[in-house]
């Protein structure tokens, strides 16, 4: 059984396994840092903890955009570090059976999986996710 948080960036659907998830927040104004990487939107303060917020648009190869009120920040953790992921829209937490995901992976419009690895965000095809 796979539990995934479905989210969307400009109509394109992504999913984050709930094992990475901490919480989902409404978007807040971010502070920028000198020499911050291109794919980082800025940093935020989550109850005293400073998190880098990744711009999913940049990761997905889409044009940058100003943060809107309706945007959300998904707080995720790989057990070692926490980071924020800036997305347009949160759909829901969904439970999938293995075969459902497999069937989904065969579609040319299959959603992709967002994973965390080495303090960074990684986008994986559904097939690769299932192979792991």
């Amino acid at each position: 059984m796979h539990e995934l948080l479905m989210l969307a960036i400009e109509g394109t659907v992504f999913a984050v396994p709930t094992s990475y998830l901490v919480e989902v927040l409404p978007a807040v104004a971010l502070s920028t840092m000198p020499l911050q990487p291109d794919f980082i939107s800025g940093v935020m303060n989550l109850r005293g903890e400073v998190l880098a917020v990744h711009d999913m648009r940049k990761h997905a190869g889409l044009a940058a955009k100003e943060i809107e009120e309706t945007d959300k920040i998904v707080v995720a953790s790989d057990g070692k570090i926490k980071l924020g992921i800036l997305v347009d829209k949160i759909e829901a937490v969904q439970r999938f059976k293995e075969e459902q995901l497999f069937a989904q992976s065969l579609s040319p419009r299959a959603f992709r999986i967002i994973e965390l690895k080495d303090r960074n965000v990684l986008i994986k095809d559904l097939q690769d996710y299932l192979d792991d």
Binding site: T18, S19, T70, K72, A92
Partner: peptide
């Protein structure tokens, strides 16, 4: 409604954990 939605998502995450 939107806040409720977000709350539901967070609740689901807590439940999964």
């Amino acid at each position: 409604a939107q806040q409720s939605n977000l709350l539901a998502v967070n609740a689901a995450i807590e439940a999964a954990r």
